[in-house]
Simulated assay, not measured.
Amino acid sequence: MATRPETAKKILLHWMDATIALLGFVFAAHIVSMAAEERISVPVALFALACMTGVLVLYCLILRDAYDDRPLPAVKLAVGALLAAGAVLLPTLHLTDVGMWENIAYIWLASAVLYLPLWATVCLGAGLLTALTVFLTAVTTSPWQTVLVGQLISAPLVPAATWIWCWMWRTIRDAHDSQEAKARLAVSEERLRFARDLHDLLGHSLSVITLKSELAAKMATKDAARAASEMSEVRRLAGESLIEVQLAVDGYRSLDLDVELAGVRAALEAAGARCTIDARAHDLSPAARTLLAWVVREGATNVLKHSRATRCSITIGGGVLEMRNDGVDSPAAGSGSGLRGLAERMVTAGGSFTAESTPTGEFLLTAKVPA
């Protein structure tokens, strides 16, 4: 099925073909009438018709080259120039007045200007106009003023129409390409968002599941009841993770800040890190609370996976969240893809995000949501 630009291109080309065919019919009728009136001989008329037909056919072919932005059709232009000269010069030499098929030269000009810059177009057009005016004035009885006025009317008409037709096609094509580029960008951004969200969803849950599974394995021979309890919690977390992934796929998931804070406290304390929370977020919008919930989740995941923290504090006030822990292994600790994705999420939403080691040996995660 043809795309809209391809359909528009076909319409414009058929429109131009019809226009050229109409001009060719008018020129041919004029040449035939001159031959019928014996103003020119039949061989000259046939020669002029052949040259005119060649120019018009080459014009249509060159126009298609220009639509597709192909290399300069130098051979076609050169042959077209010779045919245009033959169509204009030979019949005119047998007349005493100015005809109309000298406009064939301007049809060739229209095909040439498609590949020329503006200054070259003006120079070529002025040179052709001057040459034709001088030639027609010299071989006919028409005054040069009359010849010049006629040429000034004809010279810009077909080149301007041709340029407008090509400009319309390129504008339609560029607009379509722009729409396609925007669509591809939207798809790429959505894929990135989904990948980031999936990492945020599973990174935290799998870290806790791994921790509890290890704990259950250690307790299996010492405290079977505790091991069974931990495995029951693993099953619950796995089920919740599956539900969250399903919601993420549907695009309808939303995190609750209070629930995330409670879950993070339980996970960190189960890992042996004392967690203190001071959260004042009742005045924040639902969107801002959701953003901070993602920060809390990813921050806790980062602590569980990349540190040996014994204490962690979470403070929320005035739309600013600070999460500190004392388990920094190196200055680059915590600089994984999860935090990079979280930073991208915050910046996209109009907030800010930093995660860095402090001079006191702690790791500080700071996030600010838009008011």
Score class of each variant (00 low, 15 high):
A2Q: 05
E6P: 04
A8Q: 09
K9M: 12
L13H: 15
A18K: 00
H30D: 09
S33C: 03
M34C: 11
A35F: 00
A35E: 01
A35H: 00
A36R: 12
A36H: 13
A36V: 09
E37M: 09
I40H: 01
C51A: 08
M52V: 05
G54E: 01
G54C: 00
Y59L: 06
L61Q: 11
L63S: 10
D69I: 08
R70F: 03
P71A: 11
L72A: 04
A74T: 06
V79P: 14
L82Q: 03
A84P: 05
G86P: 00
L89Y: 10
P91F: 02
T92F: 02
H94F: 13
M100R: 13
E102W: 13
E102V: 09
I107E: 08
V113G: 07
L116M: 01
V122L: 11
L124G: 04
G127Y: 06
A131F: 11
V134I: 12
F135H: 04
T146G: 13
T146K: 14
T146I: 05
V147I: 05
G150C: 02
G150T: 06
L152F: 01
L157V: 04
A160T: 04
T162S: 14
W165L: 13
M168G: 07
W169N: 10
I172E: 15
A175D: 11
D177W: 02
A181I: 03
K182S: 08
R184A: 14
L185Y: 09
L185E: 05
S188T: 05
E190A: 04
R191K: 11
L192V: 01
F194K: 07
H204D: 00
H204C: 01
S207A: 04
I209F: 02
S213R: 13
E214P: 13
M219L: 11
K222Q: 10
D223N: 15
D223V: 15
A224Q: 15
A227S: 03
M231D: 01
S232R: 10
S232I: 03
L237M: 08
A238L: 01
V249H: 15
G251D: 11
G251Q: 11
G251K: 05
V259E: 14
E260M: 00
L261C: 10
G263D: 09
I277M: 11
I277D: 06
H282D: 15
L284P: 02
S285E: 03
A287P: 05
A288V: 08
T290Y: 08
V296R: 01
E298L: 11
E298P: 01
V303A: 07
S307M: 08
S307H: 11
R308K: 10
A309D: 00
I314T: 09
I314W: 10
G317E: 14
E322H: 04
N325Y: 00
A332N: 06
G341Y: 07
G341A: 03
E344A: 10
E344D: 08
M346K: 15
V347D: 14
V347W: 04
T348E: 15
A349L: 09
G351K: 03
T354G: 13
E356S: 03
P359S: 08
P359T: 06
T360V: 14
G361F: 11
G361Y: 12
L364P: 02
L365C: 03
L365D: 07
L365F: 02
